[in-house]
Nucleic acid binder design. Structure first.
Lengths: 258, 258
DNA sequence: GTCCCGTTTCAACATCTGTTGAAATCTAAG
DNA sequence: CTTAGATTTCAACAGATGTTGAAACGGGAC
């Protein structure tokens, strides 16, 4: 990932996604959809070897297409990577946002519990039938890779996920009234780190436990993580002043401002 | 990191480290120690761009040495990476092992508290004067990178850190009697994930919090993480059956066997 | 048929990559 | 001095890499 300016990509009229339905009649999807074949192959390769560890030639070969096709559809290796990252990020954000909204609706008029919020953050990712599709597991490893990549990785993550994360933080502020703001952010840091490592599926604790724990079992990971993370946040609650009458310097909670 | 067999490296008589003191008289360290200059430059580059994102030419240039010198001293790019990883891992393990021993000694004859164990795990890394040296911060990012790299990354981490981690798990088993083994391992998973993300120093929560939280402040990270992680482990204790008389199926705790 | 246009192929480019062997240089001992 | 051995430089190899332009293909519209 170099930092050179984005060059414009002229070829490829059928973007597959953001084409307005007007011009959609012409050029129906070819029988063998090369475009998503490239995305699939790139997803698998990038998640396994990182951006620099991957060759467009192997991506093209694994996708069963010509070497020039990735450039035709995506313009450059860099833009291909971003396209891979984009594709499922939107789906993920939708799932998690509705999970959060549901948790809030179920608890109304009270604030949802910390555990309900933590569940809404984790379960859409770690539970569900989509996990049988290997593409999703590859994508999770890719997210972990990006999240641990300084520089452009952090930028990519922030663009795609920070808006939703802020909504979760807002929910946590209501669930843990009076929580210190730094505890909130550092708590989220621990939360995010634990999730990221789970998504990476590196098999570390498998080996550490001699095969007793299987890190590919994401549903199990979810069930074990929820009480751990919940307890962590609630410890910050216990440390905070009780939110009865505003006693000594009550940390004002205003949606999301500092 | 390819998976080809290791070729033997013949050149370079002065390894600097594991040379027995007998043959140490000849060839004293040159005034400008090129060997560690290469290690320093490689550490900075690898931690910023990963194994494949780095060129031996830039490493050599940043170290101020000839391109052929890395091969002369380390044999290959792969072995250079391992040498970088090795160098500070041993130091780190020493610090953490004595911290754990101290925690056990201070609590004797009782078992140390969960918090004391968590502190012994974190503080040698996140507190101390060594953090002013930029090499250490680079190295931490490198550890995070390796820990999130599937395949050879997991193998490297396990070789270097698993023996010590097992000692910490043993201590936690004593501090949380009757803890479910899966809770223990998944708890450590959360712990390790939180630490790894802190070591990566990607600045994610800096941006997320609008600059309110500074992720480079590792001492602050330590203070915020300790109560969070401690509470997570203690939640597993609360869930475990009280360790009075061995009641229903007491999860036998035998040092570290499965 | 012809024409148009999105798609696909092919071959090549310029550059960069890790690695190597031989020559040159340095250092200390005899 | 000479000599031996460790260190450093130089130049090159063999192959891989992202990217590109031109040509060929394909299927509807007319």
């Amino acid at each position: 990932m170099t930092r050179k300016g984005r060059q414009v990509h002229k070829g490829c009229k059928n973007n597959g996604e953001d084409t307005p339905l007007s011009a959609r009649k012409k050029s129906p999807p070819p029988k063998t959809d090369r475009r998503s074949a490239i995305l699939d192959a790139a997803e698998a390769e990038f998640s396994a070897h990182g951006f620099d560890g991957v060759t467009l030639r192997t991506i093209a070969k694994n996708a069963g297409v010509d070497l020039a096709l990735p450039h035709y559809y995506f313009g450059s290796k860099e833009q291909l990577f971003v396209a891979v990252f984009d594709r499922r990020a939107k789906v993920l954000n939708d799932w998690r946002e509705t999970a959060l909204i549901d948790a809030i609706a179920e608890a109304r008029p009270a604030a949802p519990t910390v555990e309900a919020i933590v569940r809404a953050y984790l379960e859409p990712l770690l539970k569900g039938p989509h996990l049988s599709e290997p593409g999703w597991k590859s994508y999770y490893a890719l997210v972990a890779y990006v999240n641990n990549t300084p520089g452009w990785g952090g930028r990519l993550m922030a663009e795609h996920f920070d808006p939703l994360i802020r909504k979760f933080l807002d929910a946590l502020r209501l669930a843990i009234p009076g929580i210190d703001e730094k505890d909130l952010y550092w708590g989220y840091h621990c939360f995010s780190g634990a999730l990221t490592l789970a998504l990476a599926q590196t098999g570390r604790i498998d080996k550490l436990s001699g095969g007793f724990v299987r890190s590919e079992d994401l549903a199990e990971a979810c069930e074990r993580m929820v009480p751990f993370i919940t307890a962590g946040f609630e410890a910050a609650q216990r440390a905070a002043p009780a939110p009865r009458a505003r006693a000594t310097k009550p940390a004002r909670v205003k949606s999301s401002a500092h």
